[in-house]
Every structure is written in C-alpha cells, then in structure tokens.
Design a protein around this nucleic acid. Sequence first.
DNA 1: TATGAATGAGGATTCATTCAT
DNA 2: CATGAATGAATCCTCATTCAT
Lengths: 199, 199, 199, 199
Amino acid sequence: MDLKTRIAEAAEQVIRANGLAKTTTKEIARIAGCSEGSLYNHFKSKEDLFLYVLRGQLTNLMGALTALRELAGQGTVRGNLEKVALAAVADYYQSMSFICSVISERDLLNRHREGFAARNEGPHRANETLEAYLSEEKLLGRVHESISPRAAADLLLGSCFQHAFQLRFLGREESEEQRSRFVKHTLDALFEGLQAREA
Amino acid sequence: MDLKTRIAEAAEQVIRANGLAKTTTKEIARIAGCSEGSLYNHFKSKEDLFLYVLRGQLTNLMGALTALRELAGQGTVRGNLEKVALAAVADYYQSMSFICSVISERDLLNRHREGFAARNEGPHRANETLEAYLSEEKLLGRVHESISPRAAADLLLGSCFQHAFQLRFLGREESEEQRSRFVKHTLDALFEGLQAREA
Amino acid sequence: MDLKTRIAEAAEQVIRANGLAKTTTKEIARIAGCSEGSLYNHFKSKEDLFLYVLRGQLTNLMGALTALRELAGQGTVRGNLEKVALAAVADYYQSMSFICSVISERDLLNRHREGFAARNEGPHRANETLEAYLSEEKLLGRVHESISPRAAADLLLGSCFQHAFQLRFLGREESEEQRSRFVKHTLDALFEGLQAREA
Amino acid sequence: MDLKTRIAEAAEQVIRANGLAKTTTKEIARIAGCSEGSLYNHFKSKEDLFLYVLRGQLTNLMGALTALRELAGQGTVRGNLEKVALAAVADYYQSMSFICSVISERDLLNRHREGFAARNEGPHRANETLEAYLSEEKLLGRVHESISPRAAADLLLGSCFQHAFQLRFLGREESEEQRSRFVKHTLDALFEGLQAREA
DNA sequence: TATGAATGAGGATTCATTCAT
DNA sequence: CATGAATGAATCCTCATTCAT
C-alpha cells in the first residue's frame, strides 16, 4: 500500500475516532507511520486531505442506491429498500464524524460548497437517487400512486440518518440483529402508513 | 440584559455562524462587547459556556412536543403532527451547528455523555416524546393499529432532521412556504404509506 | 480580629502552604473570608501584603536571640545555644516558603533590598546577633579563645537553616524528639570540634 | 551547539537571573534565539525544561564530594574539606534560584518528590556523601573519635549553604579571597570546637 | 520523495488590580 | 470600609505548515 493511501486511511481512522476538530496532523502521521512532512508531499493541506477522505465516505450506500436503479421492477420494493436502509444506517454511522464536521466547520463548508455542487457531491445525493428509484417503481405501479417519491425517500433515509446520529450521540453500537429490527419496523410503518383504517 | 446572558447569546450566535471548532473566546467577547476575561467570571471554561448554550437548543421543539401530550385525541393527528414537524425543521435548522459539534468533538461528547444521560437530555428525547404521543393516539384509534409508534416518530423527525441538515449543507434558507410544502408532502407520504393499493 | 489582620494571616497561611508563586489574591480572599477588593483597602498591592507578612517571620528566633544578649555569662553557653537552635529550626521551617520566595523572585528582592538594608532586616540579622552573643561569651572566657564568633554563629545557624530546608524538600515533619536530637548532635560536634585528639 | 542545549542554557541563565516564577517561555526563547514553539519540540513543558536544567545543578559540588570518597586517608582532612567547602559555596551560590524555586513552588515539588526520591536526587545528597567521607576518616583516626560525622557534615555544608543564601539576599558577590577567608574561618571553628579550654 | 526540526500565529486561561455601588 | 464584576495584559501551549537536508 503506498504512502498516500496509508495517510488517507490514517486520517479516516483518526477523524472517525476523534472528529475533525481534535484531529491533528501529528496524530495522522503517527498512525500512518510517517513524518508530518510527508503529509504535505501528498496533500496540499490538512483540508485537502480531509476533502480527499471525505469523498470516500458513504460509498457503500451510494453503491447500493446506484445498483437500485437497475432493480426497478425486480424483486420486491420492500426487499430492495431493506438493502438500501441497512447500507444507509451502516454508512451514516461510520461517516457521522465526517458528516457533522462539514457542518461544524462552516468556513470549510463555505469554501467548498461550489466544488461539491459542481461535482454533484454531498449526502443529499442519496435522497435524490432513492427518489429516482421510487419514481420508477411508481410508474411500474409497485408503490402507492398518490405518494411523493421524494417525500418517501426523505422519510426512509432521514430516519436512518437520525438513527445513526443518535447511536453516535448515545455512544452505542448496535448488533446486526438490532439494526435489522430497526429497519424492519421502519419499513413496516413506511409501507403501511399512519392513517387509521376504517372498520 | 446582564452580561452572563449577553455572553451566552454571543456564544450562541458565533457557534451558529462558525461552528464550535472555529469559535474563539476572543470572538465571543467581541460580540458580547466585553473582555475575554469576563467570560471566565461567568463560565468556568469555554466548554462550560458551550454546554450552557447547548442546553437552550431545541427548546421550541421540545415545547411543542410536550404540549402535544395534552393534545392526544384533540384536533386531528395530522394537524398536531404538522405543528411538531414545523417546529422540528425550524429548531433542527437553527441548532444544527450545535448538534453536529457535539459529534465532531468526540472527547467533549465522551466527557459529558453521562451528564446528558443523568439529566435525560439530548436530541433523542424528541423522538421518545413523539412516540409517547403516537402511542396514545393509537389507543384512541386515531392512528393505524398495526403501526409502531416509535418507527413513525423516527420517520417523521428523522426526515425533518435530515432535511434541516441538508439545507445547512447546501447553504440554503427555506421560505415559510417551502417549509410548509416539505412538511405537507412528508405527512402525506407518512399517512398514506408506500404500499401499492390493489385496484 | 480586624480584617487587616485576617487578611495578613490568610496570606501567611496560603504562602506557607503553596509558596508565593502559586498564591493568588483570590485564594487569600477566600481564606480571609472577604472579597478580593478588600485586600486593596488594606494593602497597596499583593507585593505590599507579602512584605507585611514577611516582616512577621522569624520573630521567635529573633526574640530568642535578643533575649540571649542579656544572658551572656548566665546559665551555660551550651544551654543558651540549645534554645536558640531549637527556635532557629522551628522558625526556619515555618518560614522557608517566605525565605525562598524572596530569592526566587529576584525583581521583588531587588526592589526592596534597600528597604531591608535601611530597616536592618533580613535573615542574616540572626547570624549577627548570635555572633555578638558569642563575642561576649568569648570575652567572659566561656568559649574557646581562638574561635571566630562569626564563624561559630554561621556554623550553628547555617546547619539549622539547611536542616529546615531539607525537611521541606523531603516533605517531612520532625517530631520534637527528632528535632532535639538533631540539635544535640549538632551542638556536640560544634563544641567538641573535628580535630583528632592526640592520645 | 544544538538547539536543545541552547534552550537549556538559556533557561538556566534566565532562571538564575529572575527566578522560576518570573521566567517566561518567551524570554527563554528570546535568549536561546529561537521561537517559543521550539521549546516544545525539545521539552514537554516549561516544567519539564525546568527539571532538566535542575538536574544539572550542584554538579561541581557533587563531583568534589564523590572525588572525596577516594581521598579518605590522603592529604589532610582539613585540605580535603576546604576543597569541598569552596565548591559548596560556589555551587550553592550559582544554584540558589533553582534551589529556592523548588521550595517556593510547592506543587511542583509535590509533583516530583517521588521522582527525586526514586533517582536519589536532591541537595541533601551532598550531606550524606560528606557524612560518608567523614565516617571513613573517623575510622582512620583522622577526625575526633566522639564526633558525629553527620552533624559535622551538616555544620559545614549548612554554613556554606546559608552563606550562599545570604550573599544572594544581600545582592553581593564575593571575591575569591573573601570566599577563601570565609571557608578558612569556618573550618578553623569547626576543627577547633567552641568548647573553652581549661587553662 | 521522505524527513523532522523550526516556526509563529493564535488559542484558552489566569490573575492582580480597579472602580462603581 | 466592603464588595465583586469587569478588565486586559500576560502566560503557557498547540498545531498546520515550511524547508533544508
């Protein structure tokens, strides 16, 4: 593994563990097993390194969502969404430090917002991709005809997002079983709807 | 207004604008119109000041949720949830810097997690409160009998939470009308459910 | 007890315990049970307060030495010196923080050296007073005729001084019995002399 | 000379001149001709730097005392002690700021007392070493058989210690001749003893 | 390319002192 | 005389970044 990759992985690990605010170049170098100076042979600045690592976040989720586009009309909608939801909770949980750091450091965000927009990056991409899938399924008649695909996507991913956030806040890890149960209950409610049924 | 309040409000303003990581005591003092030393006459440390201000976050939402408990069976469920959702988006949006800073600064969170738990604080309280309300409505037959109140609460608040997050990420403000529309669509989808209806 | 005295005693206690360097006006006020502002109603500055308290140090020793002048020719020289030595160890031990602070804070010392000289103050006064006593006893033939009174005074008081210093350094307290034994051995050696005796 | 040494020497010089309490990292850096930050590349903290420099104090005296152990039975006891006494006054004088700072800053002392003990460091080591030498000479019959070696060591070194202290207190330097005279008189008195001789 | 010592700007915090009440 | 909030200068220390080797 080349040094650039080692540095990036070290940075990812440290930011995950401590958050960006308390991540120092010294610590990254220590974990990467190189000198602080070496960081600057591969990245222009600490911020540059952060952005590099940031781009590797949420890749499982985005992969699952991209795969979904091909799956419209196949399997069950419920089954397809379940895979996405599981990936979402897992990735959001793993990347929560990154996600929150972007907001916490307003100037960093401001400096790069245009870049994000230009490259069509950011966590909101997930919602858009899921929306697209649901639109297709709606055309196929496999989801309720009067539902807004965007709202449905926001409900599902928002729920996963906040769930991951709260696990981090509470300092909890979740077993696979617990996670499956959360996703199951969430999908149950999402499919069924809150509306009381007439007798 | 006494100086302690002025300092707290200055801190709130600066953290909202810049995030905790880039908030300096110097800047807080400047905005509060006092010396840096004065901060320490009223707060033990910058961290102490942050926690003080943090405790004032999400109060509108929590107020709306608490009020909700009295409203079970009154008005429409939909109408009640609408008020909550609007408060949620607004408060989450306002407090996103605080919420994310808590996660970004892992050591700060670790240091105070016990305290949060002891005082039953934290953003997850909102979900629990909404869950309680929905449970009551379920008993009253005003929400679908097979729905999980917790899952429903997580869907609604999670969606609002992530929506607020994404507004911050994109650097957008939302008009009242846009916000109402977001809430409306979200509630539509949540009430209706994804399930395709048989012809 | 009036406030000025209470402040002075608080300062003495705190300096004794923590040394001047780590003594704050806040701590003095806390111990004195008054506000920090009150300190400045009774003393011009922290330095002024320190000097005030400093002047009260070593008073038992100086008292014992002054008394000694009257005792020349009375009792035994050994007995007279024993009282002085005991007072010296006790007072040096009690005042070691003060004594050392004067040296540690060079600028303070420089600022007040003239004042000390003008008022004939300082720990060296003890040696001069003891020298005077020994000179008288020498005239009376009660100490070895070829001894230098100043050297003898320096030996005895220097030994007590360093002994007190080392107790402080090692963080030890000494029982009265231990102290008596130290003084006894010291006087034994001082009276007898190192010189090997011919058979 | 490497920077670490330059920093250490600068610190030594500044502490000697101003005492630890009034020694700032800024001033040390200025004298060392480097930035304040550099101090922290070589020492963990100001305290760490102080301890490093402290360990280099009293080395001439300790060297002279160690050499003494080999000299038992050689030359004259008086001559041997003279060398030690001269080294003692010189070293105590040079290091008085350090010695006193250790006492003035009680918490520093408390924090490191165990370390001092573990490494068998501290000014009291000098007395123990001199005591050992005198014990040997006593066995050789070269010092008075009824004298306590420890008491004799305390008398001599205590006198030198306090003499150095008082020179600092009075702001005086001593010529070599004056110093020799002080040592000579002190040894005269110590060898002869105070005891009046019967006619 | 890899290093790591050196930097220096900037941060949080302390503390003696002042002054209006 | 007593207060204690307000001050602001000064302090120790951190850390991203540079650069000569």
